[in-house]
Design a protein around this nucleic acid. Structure first.
Length: 616
RNA sequence: GGGCCCGUAGCCUAGCCAGGAUAGGGCAUCAGACUCCUAAUCUGAGGGUCCCGGGUUCAAAUCCCGGCGGGUCCGCCA
């Protein structure tokens, strides 16, 4: 672990403190550390003189003059200058560079293990259609954060909360039981002259036991078979989405059908109709089977999928309700609910419908209690529209002796024409986004490389395309509302591609020079060489990486890492442009610097789930 | 109506929690750089009422109060 950058701050504080003591002044509460606005003004600065000014009744400039008389320069610095009210410290880059290069290894950025288990829930999109660009903000923030937290030494378990009990899923199941898929939308690989449902009828005829099924269940079975036989796994979420859209149309035209959906929900919750349970499970599974390849392609991973129905089946929902009732928190008339007015929330929290079924919030309460029991810290990634709901949940978790989750809220991604909606079938799917992104990357590659095979180009285009999408989301602070625009999302200039490009450049130099890190002796590598400013800047940025990992993990801010990646790439590209490496006087040092840049670029991109191609 | 979030050049954005140097970047615009490790790059220029108005402070994009504009929530939805 590289603590060089941290040491700079520590050494500044220490020497300032000692100087203040020597002058017999009171130590201020805080010795602020800043970075000077320009590199030629120094590397680390402190405005401690401001802190002292009011107590000492002297001007900051005067105070600095006195501090400068007695202050001892830490060895890592070359000099200290007093500029107005600031003390500016200049790094001794000969020493510093050697220390930094020595401590950067292939695992650079991985911090010491701390024994803290975090359960991080993210994505958790309803299985009623494919993932769209509104969902990926959740996935990308969650997955990146999980990588950052793991790197910072925590144990992170990522979970996807599968909603298999809500009304929306019941609507999908209703569609499965009462409607048909549209075979005209089958992919081209199926011959047009066959009727899928005809084939399915034949299959059912051949299985005598299936012949007993009738009515909606028979229809449901046909639809399940349709999905499994005729639809590729990766497209099943799209089919479910279209079915869901169709059901919404039906319901709009005939609101009486709502009763049928409610009945499905009641029966499923009671859990005594195995066949209906089968249809719920199959509907949800079909959708998850379609989402899985999408998430894989984005490098988004979940350790566990937790099905919501579990908390009804295993009795924890009942236990919670019993406990809340017993402790006198609840109010009961037709429904069972909690009055949270004492906690500043006007809106009561309903725990049970008048028909006795549970609600999302009831089950979510049980889920959060489980997460609380299984971890030290619970983190949720949620759209900011869930703020009130999670606030209610948190209060009730307090009644139940559970930990409140830490929540990272993000604002919506909308289209220029308005908000997205699975229900209305208005959205851009992640699959389409990735397809477009890799396609555009492919065009760029073809523009500049004619030496690559199609497969090689494809492979690189995939890394660039996925990287562009992930970076587009990860670079922005989550509380910022995004209006999705293709050209902004898939820009290859000064964005992710420029970072990947810096990495590819580094790889190319090392490859060309046949660099072997194992034979390099870093000691005394610099001799008396006075580093040029692009080299100094690059060394400094490399040394900041550990601190960035720490800081982004602590503050749970993914975009700090994105910003860092850009800074690092920029420092490297400037160095690359202005300093010859191969064949130069300082080749040995510069190759080592290129190698450390390569590692840091790769590891920082890794935190964002972005591949670093070795050639572009 | 009430709660929460956002408002920084034509566009996107960091900085705000922990107030300090000329408000950082990027896109777009303009001017320049490939006989030299890939120009997905680099160098330079112009462009700002940090939404508005008060207040606190030696010092406010940052903290406090009041507005304005946009988003979102206030379901026996999830």
């Amino acid at each position: 672990m590289n603590l060089m950058f941290r040491k700079l701050h520590r050494d500044v504080r220490k020497s300032v403190k000692e100087a203040i003591i020597e002058l017999g002044w009171d130590l201020p509460d805080n010795i602020p550390i800043e970075e000077p606005p320009r590199p030629d003004m120094g590397d680390v600065a402190t405005s401690v003189a401001f802190e002292l000014a009011s107590k000492l009744k002297r001007s900051p400039v005067k105070i600095n003059r006195e501090l400068m008389e007695v202050i001892k320069k830490p060895t890592i610095f070359k000099e200290i200058k007093s500029v107005g009210p600031y003390l500016n410290f200049f790094i001794n880059y000969q020493n510093y560079s050697e220390s930094v290069l020595e401590t950067v290894d292939e695992d650079y950025g991985k911090l010491e293990t701390i024994h803290e288990k975090i359960i991080l829930e993210h994505t958790s999109a309803n299985p009623n259609g494919p993932l769209h660009i509104g969902h990926i903000r959740n996935s990308i923030l969650g997955d990146s954060l999980s990588r950052i937290l793991s790197n910072s030494g925590c144990t992170v378990e990522t979970q996807y909360y599968v909603n298999d009990m809500g009304r929306q899923i019941a609507m999908v199941v209703w569609g499965l039981l009462n409607l048909k898929f549209d075979p005209s939308k089958l992919a081209d690989q199926s011959p047009k002259d066959i009727d899928p449902y005809q084939q399915i009828d034949n299959i059912i005829k051949e299985h005598s036991k299936l012949n007993d099924l009738e009515g909606t269940y028979l229809n449901g079975l046909k639809n399940i078979l349709y999905l499994q036989i005729f639809i590729d796994a990766e497209l099943r979420d799209h089919q479910i989405g279209e079915l869901y859209f169709q059901v919404n149309q039906e319901l709009k035209n005939n609101p009486d059908l709502k009763g049928g959906v409610d009945e499905l929900l009641r029966v499923y919750e009671r859990g005594n109709d195995p066949l209906l349970g089968f249809f719920f499970k199959e509907a949800v599974n079909a959708c998850l089977e379609g989402m899985d390849p999408t998430l894989q392609r984005l490098h988004v991973h979940h350790k566990r999928f937790i099905w919501e129905s579990k908390f009804v089946r295993n009795g924890s929902v009942d236990e919670i309700i019993t406990k809340l009732k017993k402790d006198g928190h609840t109010q009961e008339n037709e429904i069972l609910c909690l009055n949270l007015e004492d906690y500043g929330i006007e809106k009561e929290l309903v725990l049970m419908r008048s028909d006795g079924t549970s609600l999302y919030s009831t089950r979510d309460l049980a889920y959060h209690l489980e997460k609380s029991n299984e971890s030290d810290v619970v983190i949720d990634i949620l759209g900011s529209d869930h703020k009130l709901a999670i606030q209610q949940i948190s209060i009730v978790l307090g009644f139940l002796d559970g930990k409140s989750p830490e929540v990272i809220f993000y604002e919506f991604i909308t289209l220029p024409e308005g908000s997205m909606s699975t229900r209305r079938g208005v959205f851009i799917s992640v699959d389409d986004l990735l397809e477009e992104s890799t396609e555009r990357a492919m065009e760029e590659i073809k523009k500049r490389r004619d030496d690559l095979s199609n497969d090689e180009a494809r492979e690189i285009a995939e890394k660039i395309g996925v990287g562009a999408v992930r970076f587009y989301i990860a670079r922005l602070s989550p509380e910022k509302h995004i209006v999705f625009k293709w050209d902004e999302a898939l820009s290859f200039e000064r964005g992710c591609a420029s970072i990947q490009y810096a990495h590819a450049r580094a790889c190319k130099i090392l490859q060309k020079a046949e660099f072997d890190s194992s034979t390099v002796n870093l000691e005394g590598i610099l001799g008396k060489y006075d580093l040029k400013s692009p080299e100094r800047e690059l060394v400094k940025v490399i040394s900041q990486f550990t601190w960035v990992v720490e800081e982004s993990a602590r503050s749970r801010k993914v975009h700090l890492v994105s910003q860092y990646c850009l800074d690092l790439a920029s420092a490297f590209n400037k160095f690359y442009k202005s300093m010859p490496v191969i064949g130069s006087e300082e080749e040995e040092f510069r190759l080592a610097l290129v190698d450390k840049s390569r590692i840091t670029l790769r590891n920082s991109l890794e935190l964002l789930g972005i591949d670093a191609p070795e050639s572009m």
